[in-house]
């Protein structure tokens, strides 16, 4: 009798101990996980601040060996690339998202939904290869357009799925009220449903744009990169990410330092855009 009660007690404490050990280790894992985040931010800010000055935003890169210079062409180039990508990707993504939520409750809709998810898992460099065969090969030279096409393909799944999910959140009674007033379905969707859901959709679009701004791999052999000023979309164009890649590999110390600054500017660019968007979408409430 005594033995069993002792074993029971032992089991009880063992269970308690396991509980505490496992739960606290999961807490510590959570801490460990975010350490790299702080390390990356810390180094980017510390190293990046060194070259962060007006020149960086106003001057072109200097020839090898000459100190100074900036990356104004890369900043503009990144914006142009996102612009082309968004110009193609946003309409395609939003319209297919509208289809999925309003008309896509069938087998084909499920298939498209599934493929959009699968598409978002395809490596960006593979998308770059496709943009290369699609645009660069027929045109016979690298171009900003090819880079934009690659970024558009990368944005589409995010925008499609967010649009769909956000439209699904709009209460059904809104649609019913509009339809009951005799408004055609397409007007109901465009002017009532989309208007209600636009904040969510804007967030999704922004997420897609921000992700595209950080892409490097698909640009390496589409937009290529350019050390000179160019805004021609049929010519190679510079981008911050490709500059970061090339400057980090280079054996020159000031190039390495400029790579950090470019990284800092890229992070700032992404956060400013998302902050502005968040403020705009919030103030309308």
């Amino acid at each position: 009798m005594e033995m069993t009660s002792r074993t029971k007690k032992f089991t009880y404490y063992r269970r308690k101990a396991t509980n505490v050990i496992m739960l606290s280790s999961s807490f510590f894992s959570a801490i460990i996980t975010i350490i790299p985040l702080f390390l990356v931010f810390y180094y980017t800010v510390r190293e990046g601040l060194r070259y962060l000055n007006i020149d960086f935003f106003t001057k072109l890169p200097t020839p090898i060996g000459e100190p100074g210079g900036g990356m104004v062409n890369a900043i503009v180039g990144t914006l142009i690339l996102i612009g082309i990508g968004g110009g193609i990707g946003i309409p395609v993504g939003m319209l297919s998202g509208i289809y999925l939520s309003e008309f896509g409750k069938n087998k084909f809709g499920t298939l498209v939904r599934f493929l959009a998810d699968v598409l978002s898992g395809i490596p960006s460099i593979v998308v770059g290869v496709v943009a290369y065969t699609l645009v660069v090969l027929p045109m016979k030279h690298f171009s900003a357009l090819a880079g934009g096409v690659a970024l558009a393909i990368l944005m589409i799944p995010t925008i499609t799925r967010t649009t769909e999910e956000m439209i699904n959140l709009v209460p059904h009674s809104y649609r019913e009220a509009a339809l009951a007033l005799g408004i055609p379905k397409w007007k109901t969707i465009l002017f009532i449903v989309l208007k209600t859901a636009w904040k969510g959709i804007a967030t999704g679009v922004l997420l897609g744009l921000a992700r595209a701004a950080g892409e490097t791999a698909p640009l390496l052999f589409t937009a290529l990169g350019n050390r000179f000023w160019s805004t021609n979309i049929f010519r190679p164009i510079a981008s911050l990410t490709v500059f970061i890649y090339e400057y980090s590999k280079a054996p020159f110390k000031d190039w390495n330092e400029q790579a950090w600054t470019a990284a800092l500017v890229l992070i700032m660019l992404i956060s400013i855009v998302s902050l502005v968007f968040r403020l705009i979408t919030r103030s309308k409430y």
Partner: peptide, 16 residues
């Protein structure tokens, strides 16, 4: 952590 561009991870990888 997922939003940081991978080239920045690479940069951090090379120098840190």
């Amino acid at each position: 952590l997922a939003a940081i561009p991978s080239v920045i991870y690479g940069l951090w990888g090379i120098f840190v």
